[in-house]
Each structure stands twice: as structure tokens, then as C-alpha cells.
Amino acid sequence: MSLLSVSHVTKRFGGLVAINDASLVVEAGSITGLIGPNGAGKTTLFAVVSGFEAPTEGTIRFEERDITAVPTHVRARDGIARTFQIVQPFAGLSVADNIAVGAHLRHAGRADALAVAHDVARRVGLDRDLHKPAASLTVAGRKRLELARALATGPKLLLLDEVLAGLNPSEIRDIVPVIRAIRDDGVTILMIEHVMQAVMNLCERVYVLAQGRIIAEGEPRQVCEDQAVIEAYLGKGAAARLSSRAAGGAHV
């Protein structure tokens, strides 16, 4: 069953077409990747799915319901949570209070919300930092905090916007199993990611966005060999040059 389906979404900012007739489907229980060169419109597509921006055309369906006109906070209540590419901590609050804001969505009492916050912090590896101010966290810590806050809302669909960007290889190695564990707990994930090693490792299905259009979709390996995808990243004619070099190499 498809949990989220984006159909024929176009988003224009004045004369700029950020997303052009993009469609994608996220199956329940999957980890789906959204990749593409810088400026392709990935984050704009997230903004449209989470309700921060209204699409110019097209519809968003969540659990078979049309949610195109539903405001952001109601989508969160329905079960869509997002993280931000540029981290947005509540800088004046402690880590525990940051996560508790997310937990309050489904828990009215402060004690309940804090208990959920502790639990979520343990899942993402922030339990040692609970009482620190959010502003004192490292980049990796802030990325985990983004993840923890979103997770604390008890989502069905988690939109992860480059949670691995800016992390070093060992930090990435630490957090990949965390993301997989979240999916195994029943949360469907749609992730924007540039770290291909992680995309290959985690995603069952990948969509490639370039200049606002979906130019390829499929399994990660298949997508990486797609001519259009290689050209979108490396420039026109790159695919042909690469394959001829590979062919030439084979002769020698």
C-alpha cells in the first residue's frame, strides 16, 4: 500500500519553476530515497509534502486521503514528521525540552512527554546529552536532535532532509543503523541524501530529481547506472564518455 503519493506536483516561485510535474510514491514500511544535484528542488518538494509550501499544481495524498490543503501542524498530527536540512533547534531549551515539544503532540502531560523524550533520546543516542542546552551540541548532535524531535511526534512517515550531511564517516557509520532501526519499528522513511554509500545501504527505492523533474526511479544500483542520472550529475555527454572509456579499457 502506498502511504504517500505525490502526483503531478508543480511549484513555481514567480518565474522560477522549482518543481516541474513531479510524481512519486512511498510504500508503507519502506525507506525511499530522493537524490539529485544541488538546486534540483528536493527540499522544496519536502516543503510541499510537509505543508510549508502549497503546490502550484498537483495533489499530495497520505493514506489515500487528499491532504494538499491541510496545514503543516495538522499533517504532523496525521503522522507526517520532517527534519530540516539546516538544523532548527530550540536553542534556548535543553535537549530534553526540545524533544518534549515533539512528544507533546501525543502526550498532554509533562511527565509523559519527558518520559517519551528520554526513550527517543536513547534510540538516537542522545541520552547522555539530555540536560545540555541544545545550543551546546555538535553538528552531529544537532542532526540527531532533529531526528529525535521528529521521532517523538510518533510519526507514520518521517521525512529526513540530509540528516547525514556534514557528518564524518564514523558518525555516518553510527547513525545508519539508527535510521534502519526506526524503519524496523514501523516508521516509513523518505530521505533526501547526498551520501551515496548510505543511500545504497538503506534505500529500497530511489527517485532522482533534476531541475525540478523526476528523471529516474528504481532500485539504487539500477538508478546509478542510468544514463540520464549520470548526465544530470556530471554534465551532458558524460554517460557516453564514461561508457566509451570503460569499453576502451576492456580492449587494453
Binding site: H73, P89, F90, L93, V101, R110
Partner: peptide, 26 residues
Amino acid sequence: ERSRFGAQLVAVRENEGAARALGVDA
């Protein structure tokens, strides 16, 4: 200070966009 309303109010003060993403009706 100790209620859900207070937590959401402070969240709106700190970062309204992030608060909305967490289901706060700002």
C-alpha cells in the same frame, strides 16, 4: 511553564517553523 501549552508557547518563541513541523498550532 509545566504544561503542554507552555512548552508549545516557548517552542513558538524559539523557532516557529520548527514548532509547526512538530504539530504545534502556532
